[in-house]
């Protein structure tokens, strides 16, 4: 059971994660995203095989990132949300309880996105994801394999960047100064990288077509991606939990959608 999330069909999983991701954008209260975040956390811990240590090394930096971002947000809350008493004043800003609440809500919402994202990334093989898009969503094989062919080059970019840095140092290029210098610098790195990438794109495409690839749908599938009952259960669970959260939030009178307090 602990590897359930890994076994879920990648396309279904993506949908199961996108729907809550989009719907969470509606809420501006604290309760709703907090409860859903806890839910995603429980799913990650109990139903996936992501080791907690690995998960937290990914998640923790984002918490800092979001925290620093929310601080800035706190200062610019619009009047709709400026309810409550003034907590403290700072230069020309007034921080109210309403402002703090909405800042926390938005931060929690972002954390939800990240937790959902990690649940997907850490349990999904990128090749299988693409193959599933082709088999379930009828994405054209030409696009599927074209994208996979490009994705393969990801590890080579970093290596090439290192070599470029060394080669430029040999030529005596000092660190760029000013905007002009930075644009030049940007060009000196991007042109060789992109030029090489474009040549490779052409060669890979030739090699693929030389192996009889036509881009048509008439091909067999070594990895058969299927959708089973388990996948529907997962989808129902992820979306159902969100709806349930919305409902209880409404019931207790927390729910806030675009500044409208419900219940």
């Amino acid at each position: 059971m602990s590897s359930m999330v890994s076994a879920v069909n990648p396309t279904v999983k993506a949908i199961a994660i996108l729907i809550p991701g989009v719907l969470l954008g509606l809420t501006f209260d604290i309760y709703t995203p907090l409860v859903y975040l806890l839910f995603v956390f429980v799913v990650t811990l109990w139903l996936s095989d992501i080791p907690f240590k690995r998960w937290i090394t990914f998640f923790a930096p984002f918490v800092l990132f979001i925290a620093s971002f929310s601080w800035a947000r706190l200062l610019y809350t619009s009047d709709t949300f400026q309810g409550g008493s003034v907590l403290f004043s700072f230069w020309t800003f007034e921080v109210t309880t309403g402002g703090v609440a909405v800042a926390i809500s938005l931060a929690l919402r972002s954390l939800c996105f990240i937790a959902l994202s990690l649940l997907f990334i850490l349990t999904t093989d990128s090749t299988k994801f693409m193959l599933s898009l082709m088999q379930q969503l009828k994405l054209s094989p030409k696009i599927t394999y074209g994208v996979l062919a490009g994705y393969r080059f990801l590890p080579t970019f970093k290596h090439e960047l290192d070599v470029l840095r060394q080669a430029h140092r040999i030529r005596g290029v000092s660190r760029a100064k000013g905007i002009r210098g930075r644009i030049q610098q940007f060009k000196r790195y991007s042109i060789p990288l992109l030029a090489n990438a474009i040549r490779k794109a052409e060669r890979v495409a030739n090699a693929m077509e030389s192996k009889g690839f036509t881009g048509e749908r008439d091909r067999t599938h070594y990895h058969m991606m299927t959708v089973t009952k388990r996948d529907w259960i997962f989808l129902g669970m992820m979306v159902g939990a969100l709806l349930l959260t919305f409902a209880t939030s409404y019931y207790f009178g927390y729910l806030n959608i675009f500044g409208h307090q419900f219940g």
Partner: peptide, 30 residues
């Protein structure tokens, strides 16, 4: 055709999947 550049002849990540790619192109049964 086997080409010159070993870096740009493949579209899949693993050896197995790359070889399967060719066979799928030829519609070899799964």
């Amino acid at each position: 055709i086997v080409f010159q550049d070993p870096e740009s002849q493949f579209c899949m990540i693993t050896v197995e999947d790359e070889l399967a790619f060719t066979l799928e192109n030829c519609q070899v049964p799964r």
